[in-house]
Amino acid sequence: MSQSPSPSTAPAFRLETVGMDALIVRLFAAIDEAHMPWILAADNALRQRFGEALIDLVPSYTTLLVHYDVARLSQREARQWIDEALRGLKPASTETGREHRIPVWYDDSVGPELTRIAERLGVDTDEIVRRHAGRDYCAFALGFSPGYAFMGMVEEALATPRLKTPRQKVAAGSVGIAERQTAIYSMRSPGGWNILGRTAVELFDRERDEISLFRPGDRVRFEPISREAFIEQGGDTTPLEER
């Protein structure tokens, strides 16, 4: 997966019927961070064009799902509106996405796969931490649970398949990787990602103005912190496997 520069002309898109009141706008064929400015620009243009007739708009790696109000328009009209909205599209500036620094306590007790991955690569766990925290990740899409962002790309050598048997319960704040993606569990849930550590940051907080910390297109960098700092931030040190 190349980090190619953003194409300077608008990508050709395809419209696919996916339901009575939903269309998929397919912009790209592969996952690439360079595509996000186009996805964000399309997101913005579609929101503007549809206004009140938009029920939900779900951007993902290469697509946007447009769920519109059929009491207001037919699918033929929706297709026309999408065509109009995306005509002459310009990529969003890379500043559109916000930047986040997420403090993480990387430790075997809360991240049992830290050692497993280190052993596989023949390095110590500090090296894994340095490499996982050593780059910016792009939030490609939110899903799985409220506020949960699928981020990438993890360095090729760290890529690890999902656990064969998912855990029944993964603690909220657990930081994991699956293949070349990384994510933070936004709430306690079952899950099969390889867990490296834990953050005390709340990803989905209904009392906050921005309920979800992340939005599609945001950039995220992990910051290794000590156990003491994690506790100071209100982190829960209960080992993962005891939960």
């Binding site: 996916v18 339901g19 009141d21 939900d56 779900v58 993902s60 790696y61 290469t62």
Partner: peptide, 10 residues
């Protein structure tokens, strides 16, 4: 397949 938004009744 790359994950994408899914409508009701998919």
């Amino acid at each position: 397949m790359i994950s994408e938004g899914i409508p009701l009744g998919a």
